[in-house]
Design a binder for these strands. Structure first.
Length: 159
DNA sequence: GCCAACGTTGGC
DNA sequence: GCCAACGTTGGC
């Protein structure tokens, strides 16, 4: 079996938090509403079942990494793009040529403590995270090394 | 609520 | 295919 890939997905806890994910039936949700090509490509072309996903809370106090999920369904058409009444409706996505895709992810665990973006910036080995380099990308790759550092950090007390 | 950074759109 | 205008993201 191929090695797992690692990712980071952002969400605004005001809209959808890690606790909302944990409260879902089967602790699973479809990650709809992504309307950015690079983020879409990561989901559509990169994400495989079993991949591990860091969940990041943006526009939070403080913003930071809060938990881990796993990919349980590989990419399929994001039907919310076809729904005129949906917040994420996109008239340019056609049913015979869909533009947007999503995956399903399942809650795995909450970190013992939040790893704030401030901390990410200061920790050695995390300075190249896409989170810091391209702060606007909502679905982004994370290296195994970075992933492991984050998990390890969450086991330790903050300074 | 501000605004910098960045992605997208559309006129040319 | 350039690039100015515009919209969105997201930290602060």
């Amino acid at each position: 079996m191929a090695a797992k890939n690692h990712w980071l997905m952002k969400t605004e806890p005001n809209t959808y938090s890690i606790d909302d994910l944990a409260a879902e039936k089967n602790k699973t949700t479809c990650w709809d509403g992504v309307r950015n090509y690079q983020a879409r490509n990561n989901m559509r072309d990169g994400m495989k079942i079993g991949d591990l996903v860091l969940i990041y809370h943006s526009n939070a106090k403080p913003p930071g990494i809060v938990g881990v999920a796993t990919v349980v369904k590989e990419s399929y058409v994001d039907h919310t793009a076809f729904d005129k009444n949906d917040k994420h409706f996109d008239p340019k996505s056609k049913k015979d040529n869909p533009r947007w895709f999503m995956v399903d992810i399942k809650f795995k665990e909450k970190l013992k403590r939040l790893i704030s973006i401030d901390e990410v910036k200061t920790v050695k080995g995390l300075e190249d995270m896409v989170l810091i380099k391209n702060s606007r990308l909502s679905v982004q790759p994370v290296t195994k090394k970075e992933f492991d550092i984050v998990l390890k950090l969450s086991e330790k007390k903050a300074d």
